[in-house]
């Protein structure tokens, strides 16, 4: 099956999806405003990039849950308010510290919880580390891959920045707070480019190997 990506029509979606670095990896690009269920008939993995308009995602939530009901893989990246259109997820925002790496002896808060997960053979943990905008509480049964400890100011009890949920649906939902399409597409943060360098070929492989449930 194929790898499809939603396109929000912003300049950074355009740069990341249609730019020369990754465009050959996407079998299908679907403009979010034009998404219809038939677009996904042969799609094994649907990638929702960071910063798609959440109003549009909420309006099409049945398409996403229907896709998961067919046993296929949905990847949702950050800043999409996923907790408002997929069930069982909680979100707690945090003030964004863009500057953590400037501090003396800076150590990122992120913790690799599941080093044996297949994703990390394609994407080194260090390429997942940049600022984040909040933490996710995944549905029960999901496997947290990367998390952060409780907020120092007591805003939350910590939570996931990346998880893999194979239990809430017949399919698989991989959800992250990461926002690489925006930053790579803005020519801004090299870590986000390195992340996509590993992640997109991995996603394409997952798409190719997908088999829908009968």
């Amino acid at each position: 099956m194929t790898l499809a990506v939603l396109d929000g029509g912003t300049f950074y979606h355009h740069a990341t999806i249609h730019g020369p670095r990754y465009r050959e990896l996407f079998d299908r690009v679907i403009y979010m405003r034009e998404l219809v269920p038939a677009d996904l008939d042969d799609v094994g993995l649907l990638l929702v990039p960071d910063r798609i308009n959440p109003d549009l995602l909420r309006a099409q939530s049945d398409i996403f849950t229907g896709f998961l009901a067919r046993g296929l893989t949905l990847v949702v990246l950050g800043e999409n308010q996923v907790e408002t259109w997929l069930p069982g997820i909680a979100w707690s925002p945090r003030p964004t510290n863009f500057w953590w790496w400037l501090e003396r002896d800076a150590v990122p808060e992120q913790r690799l919880v599941a080093p044996d997960h297949e994703l990390f053979a394609a994407v080194p943990f260090t390429d997942t580390v940049w600022h984040y905008h909040g933490v996710l509480t995944p549905p029960a049964g999901a496997r947290t891959l990367i998390d952060v400890p409780p907020d120092a100011q007591g805003r939350d009890q910590g939570g996931a920045l990346l998880y893999d949920d194979r239990s809430s649906f017949p399919g698989r939902a991989i959800v992250a707070t990461l926002d690489p399409f925006y930053h790579h597409g803005s020519n801004f943060m090299p870590a986000t480019t390195r992340f996509l360098d590993g992640f997109l070929p991995w996603a394409r492989q997952v798409a190719t190997e997908a088999r829908p449930h009968a």
Binding site: D7, G8, G9, T10, F11, H14, Y31, R33, R51, N53
Partner: peptide, 8 residues
């Protein structure tokens, strides 16, 4: 905004 849907 920079986040606008320019295709639209």
């Amino acid at each position: 905004s920079m986040h606008a849907d320019q295709r639209f």
